[in-house]
Write a protein that binds this DNA or RNA. Structure first.
Lengths: 263, 263
DNA sequence: AGATATTTGTTCGTATGTATT
DNA sequence: TAATACATACGAACAAATATC
């Protein structure tokens, strides 16, 4: 594993740049710029020098520099704007991008519903327990409002699918309240995978009234637990919810490769 | 959320390309190519058309095409080779790249040891339970061999740190045996975060003999459980292990921003 | 081992688009 | 509206890498 070079002066960076003849220039340049970001302690909102200056300092052509910036942009580290005062700005990688990159990672892998629920069964209860500690009335109300989208039997297959999506969004929103970024990201990513599953593979075609009804009951119990600040009950309720959902879903088990690429 | 267009013919793709004047051309081109990959059912190893052909079919300049390919390369979806028979090849994103992209996501976020262990406490036991089902003697032997690096008291601070790393690698290897890609990736990513913590922030400077000794005991119990195919014991042992490790680590709690950028 | 053909990688000059003033 | 400052896009020429003979 490469040793992170937090401090490295410009001269050395450029030297390293010129030395490396064996590999891609654009990638090396992007790493040099990364070093600058660390070195100059740049934070989101700060601007990088403009193209001509970067070209001069790095000693590369416009095309190569643009490829390098594309790399950083793809990694979500910068964003570029045109016009006066424009240029490349440090930016915090947004959630959607990280999701889509990770989804690309699982693009050719074989992920099953069973795999997803193996994680959801342990993560969602923990999420509930965590969030319970500091969730407020306003946030509980947002969750309750989301439930109104599916607190009645669907009249069509289209509505059934829409309700499934809303039910997943309930979990997505709850995760959004979580202050542990790792836990939040994980839970939301799993929900995204399931959503893609709905859209792409068109499973859940058959009505599954039991799933909706039981889910609703669990979620009502969950909100009660939230109101009472009863984190252990919240944990248990969601554990039961997930176990139930898993067994109901496995009836329609389907492996899905590919298809959840685009973010 | 955008509707994934699994099937989309070339004409439509190009039409969509020409229509979009409001945004980045290179990015749109890269999405068109992604669509092609889906549409043509290309898999790792398959080759994309060569630059001149892509330029012709997409109606863009060479520079733009190269930026587009850079995007896909950064996302880990393709790799390019020069020379006869060269070109852009579909490739499976390697683990390291996914790790580094995700690490970039948490670059500006505040992740604490407590956050990491909140996840490890639930994931590692599940990992043990899962792996226990199919781990074989050879694999157990690999784990046992790794333990020899730290089954004795360290004589220096340097060795202490090295032992900590090896102990983390024990978990990394165990995760590598997991057949649930999601679970495997998560566990390994958490280990990577902890490793970066060792390197960058130099916590664990102070000797912590208790951590090593108790960890060793737990891991021995774990291997026994593996040998006996006793998944519930494996689960319980690792749960105790993680709880213990968390409390011992929190004594040295330190938040760490930045610094684990580069892959 | 060396020459050659093929294909990506890099550069530069120029032109166009776009947001600010 | 016009001028300005900047990114974005294009095309042709050249350099480097690699497989094949």
């Amino acid at each position: 594993m490469k040793q992170p070079a937090i401090i490295r002066d410009k001269e050395n960076s450029n030297a390293a740049l010129k030395a490396g003849r064996n590999r891609n220039r654009a990638q090396k340049v992007s790493e040099v710029i990364k070093d600058w970001i660390l070195e100059l302690r740049l934070f989101p909102g700060d601007r990088l020098p403009q193209e001509p200056e970067l070209i001069a300092k790095l000693g590369v052509s416009k095309g190569t520099l643009r490829e390098s910036l594309k790399i950083l942009e793809t990694q979500g580290l910068i964003k570029t704007r045109t016009g006066p005062g424009g240029g490349a700005f440090i930016s915090e990688m947004e959630k959607g991008l990280a999701n889509s990159l990770l989804a690309t990672h699982f693009f050719f892998k074989d992920v099953s519903i069973s795999d997803i629920y193996e994680l959801r069964i342990i993560m969602e209860p923990q999420l509930a327990r965590n969030v319970c500690g500091y969730i407020n009335e306003t946030q509980i109300e947002i969750l309750r409002e989301k439930m109104t989208y599916y607190n009645y039997p669907p009249v069509s297959i289209v509505e059934e699918q829409s309700q499934r999506e809303k039910e997943l969004e309930f979990h997505e929103i709850m995760a959004g309240f979580c202050q542990n970024e790792l836990l939040r990201f994980n839970c939301q990513f799993l929900v995204q995978l399931l959503k893609e599953l709905i859209i792409c593979k068109k499973i859940y075609q058959k009505p599954n009234p039991e799933l909706r009804e039981k889910g609703l009951t669990y979620q009502e119990q969950l909100l009660t637990a939230f109101t009472n600040k009863d984190s252990e009950t919240a944990h248990l309720v969601l554990q039961a919810h997930m176990l139930e959902a898993k067994s109901l879903m496995l009836a329609q088990e389907a492996h899905f490769k590919r298809g959840f690429l685009k973010g």
